[in-house]
Design a binder for these strands. Structure first.
Lengths: 331, 331
DNA sequence: CTGAAAGCGCTAACAA
DNA sequence: TTGTTAGCGCTTTCAG
């Protein structure tokens, strides 16, 4: 009855009185001439609501027009944007993109990879959780094409796309140096995120080049980390006049905590974030930040996965600075 | 060579010198006794890196342990949270959740549905774009189990889960009434979102019950809508002392525009948002908002899809108010 | 416990 | 253009 969807190619064939292979041919050759059989087959397909079973299809042709993207956390706008970019790119290439949320767990990453390998997808894009993802991924590069985006996991020989985080760190620090700040602190991100490490390195190099002394404060990517860092920051003497934060979330919370303690941004301290979330333009003061081309990164992932780009060394996208109200010239 | 993943059951069988069916049995019966063949088969599986081909597997058993969730926009935190909730629930039930971003297009929604039907998934959860999704979805309810969450699409007879938006609208208005406001405006959401409509209705009813006059201003879910609404609001005379916004994004932009024009929140105007995004606690003034149980909604979607809950009338989750600094007692 | 055989739904030679 | 025949990789009777 209602199970129209379960109509098989044979049902169609029988309804018309032809062989299944005939139906198959007609269906996968849309530009054929309008013969009688053709007409009748197409009609029957409509009638029965027949849809080719992709599983069976892929079993013979061994490809599913699906490309998966694994991300640590879709709730994070940065990853969501990557997903959107990837979705568009996949779509244009005739693929459907499916998103898997690995929830910051290397274990779940492994299980998804397992499922997807079993699903015979043509390739998979993964935005790794951290270094600990290495093993899970390593097991699969022999099984199917795997590419990574964003964080760089050591010891993996596969196509990679990332944002030039070192450059991003430099841009942030340079902005502050140009504004005349001499005491510039940096709130570091998680130790297991290559991206955060590179940013800090960029910051450190710029300061050294300018003859300034780097001051790295322990931090992280969450608002809690921002609050904690703010407390550490407030105890410093002399107090730096500018801060490069691990990311926007951290920065916003950092500022919040500062203001709560009567320290004003940007009058007393200049603050710069990272990611350029939509949030950055909505808070007050609006937040100066480093924009990451997340959508393009997603699209790049698809290109790499589809083998359009073969480069073996990481492809690095350029971030740029977006100046807003949270940074001001040193007084 | 490297194509370990392509090892088939037959390869394993040959390596051990048994029949494929034996391998199959052993593999799908983990709790068997430790016979010699068993040992050797398991060893060979390891050796060859054999992974059952899910496609072939599903072809016979006709089920893939995958359940898809279609959302309009993963960049929207609300939908991302729904996804996370669904992911957890699916996971616990032994399924992998895959996310599809329909990009606010009914067309793409249709294509995904098509692909997923072909993939023989056991069911699909969709958070519809709008009323226009009705046709696309309608075509599939005969093909496979479909459930919807969040927005209610008219004319679809299927399991539905949603948040009680009418109640949400009431809660927002009541809060303001209790604070002594007499002139309370409401910025409406998109006309094609049932959720937004219900909220307005809740607001209207509360005002009428309190003997007040509703004032609905055209709005929407984006920051642009918030700015536009603010301009319309500022022209009003007499100016309302409180506003219920379509959602948090709209509210934040609304407040921003008000402050820019020298109107302060909450001193001059109380503002309340909807969704309770993380953003709400980060802006200043912090935003009073209606919390939507997004994760639970996602989990509910999975339950409905898996047929655990059979109810035919929509399951409504309760929202609640989170009071913060953007609302104050009327002076 | 094991092997043989059939079949899931579809596509791809190969003839006719 | 069509029908015939295999076969994709796996599971599942059914005998043994």
């Amino acid at each position: 009855m209602a199970s129209l969807g379960r109509a098989t190619i044979r049902n169609v064939a029988q309804a018309v009185g032809v062989d299944p292979s005939t139906v198959s041919r007609i269906l996968r050759n849309p530009g054929g001439r309008k013969t009688l059989t053709r007409e009748r087959v197409l009609a029957a397909v409509q009638e029965l609501g027949y849809r080719p079973n992709m599983l069976a299809q892929s079993l013979t042709t061994s490809l599913a027009p699906i490309i998966p993207l694994l991300v640590p956390d879709v709730s994070n706008w940065f990853f969501a944007e990557i997903a959107r970019g990837a979705e568009e790119a996949a779509w244009s290439a005739g693929y459907s993109l499916i998103l898997c949320n690995t929830g910051r767990s290397a274990n779940r990453e492994g299980v998804y990879l397992e499922t997807l390998a079993a699903l015979q997808v043509p390739a998979v894009i993964v935005a790794p959780n951290s270094e600990s993802s290495a093993l899970a991924i390593q097991r699969f590069i022999a099984v199917m094409p795997v590419v990574t985006i964003d964080r760089l996991v050591a010891g993996l020989d596969l196509p990679r796309g990332t944002v030039d985080n070192y450059l991003g760190g430099r841009l942030a620090a340079q902005h502050l140096v140009e504004f005349g700040h001499r005491q510039i602190a940096c709130i570091a991100g998680p130790a297991d995120a290559s991206t955060a490490q590179e940013r800090v390195q960029g910051y450190v190099d710029v300061l050294k080049e300018a003859g300034l002394v780097p001051a790295v404060i322990t931090g992280g990517f969450t608002t809690k980390d921002g609050v904690r860092a703010a407390r550490a920051f407030l105890k410093r003497a002399p107090r730096p006049s500018a801060v490069v934060c691990a990311n926007d979330l951290c920065a916003v919370a950092f500022i919040h905590e500062l203001e709560t303690n009567g320290v004003h941004v940007p009058e007393d301290v200049s603050v710069i974030g990272y990611d350029d979330l939509p949030l950055a333009a909505l808070v007050r003061p609006t937040l100066t930040s480093i924009y990451q081309p997340a959508r393009r990164l997603g699209a790049l992932g698809v290109e790499l996965a589809l083998g359009r780009t073969k480069l073996r060394s990481p492809v690095r996208l350029r971030p740029h600075l977006v100046a807003r109200d949270s940074t001001a010239r040193a007084t």
